[in-house]
Amino acid sequence: MRMIGPVLVALATLCSTAPAQSASLLDYVGECVPFARAASGIQIYGNAWTWWDQADGRYRRGETPRVGAVIVFEKSAQLRLGHVAVVSRVVTRRVLMITHANWSRQNGERGHAEQDVTLTDVSPNNDWTSVKVWYRDRDGLGGSIYPVYGFIYGNPDAAAPRALARAVPAPELTGRNPDYVGALIDAY
């Protein structure tokens, strides 16, 4: 019975491997949540769809995309646990680039990080509540429309009961030469 404590600690350590331990953030293979936390600096834990409510009173939230903000996808039939991604570029009012993990298949498997992926707002009111995401398997925007809660910004909510440090996005959040033209072609 006395061995259970050390075993649980060892197991927790193995299960909590974070992308920051990779040689590069972009070498990461795993779930979207630890990747988004490492890429954005926003310290929220739990399933992706829970981030929106968890951010309330801790981080500012809104519907305007900003570089370094986390976009939170709602739980849906296609995304049972939701999804989180980090805004890497704002291309136009309705087109972004995101950096995220565990979306497209690469070499036949999910989980890999992808940098500067096109995401387009398809919501009727231009408020980022519905989006389409570029999908490597189709080499273009996927056909699915995903509901989105909004964006969580890296600066703490001024009304937060406890002080939070400003989140600092990872330097690898965006590439040196993102394909703006390709993003616009994908979106339109």
Rank of each mutant, 00 (worst) to 15 (best):
M1G: 13
R2M: 06
I4G: 02
V7P: 00
V9E: 06
L11F: 12
C15G: 14
S16R: 14
T17F: 12
T17L: 13
A18N: 09
P19G: 15
P19L: 09
A20T: 10
A20V: 13
A20N: 00
A23V: 05
L26C: 05
Y28P: 02
V29Y: 07
V29N: 11
G30I: 10
G30T: 11
G30C: 04
G30Y: 07
V33E: 14
R37E: 09
R37S: 05
A38F: 02
A39Y: 07
I42E: 06
Q43R: 14
Q43H: 13
A48I: 10
W52Y: 10
A55V: 05
G57H: 14
G57Q: 12
G57N: 12
R58L: 14
G62A: 09
G62L: 03
P65M: 04
P65G: 06
V67Y: 06
G68T: 08
G68L: 12
V70I: 13
V70E: 00
I71N: 01
V72M: 08
L79C: 05
L81I: 06
G82N: 01
H83I: 04
A85M: 12
V87I: 15
S88V: 06
S88K: 07
R89T: 07
V90D: 04
V91Y: 00
T92A: 06
T92G: 05
L96G: 03
L96W: 08
R105W: 02
N107W: 00
E109G: 07
R110D: 01
H112V: 03
H112P: 04
H112L: 10
A113T: 08
A113M: 09
E114Q: 13
Q115I: 11
Q115R: 15
Q115W: 03
V117A: 02
T118Y: 02
L119W: 01
T120L: 04
D121S: 08
N126C: 01
D127V: 03
W128H: 10
T129Q: 13
T129R: 15
S130W: 14
S130D: 08
V131I: 11
K132I: 01
V133M: 06
D137S: 13
D137C: 07
D137L: 10
D137V: 10
G140N: 13
G140V: 03
G140P: 03
L141D: 03
G143H: 11
Y146D: 02
P147A: 06
P147T: 10
I152Q: 00
G154K: 09
P156A: 09
D157I: 10
A159Q: 15
P161Q: 12
R162I: 12
L164C: 01
L164E: 07
A165V: 09
A165K: 15
A165T: 11
R166I: 15
A167R: 09
V168Y: 02
P169Q: 07
P169F: 07
A170L: 00
A170T: 11
E172Q: 15
L173W: 06
T174M: 11
T174Y: 02
N177C: 03
N177Y: 12
Y180R: 14
Y180G: 02
Y180P: 00
A183F: 00
A187I: 08
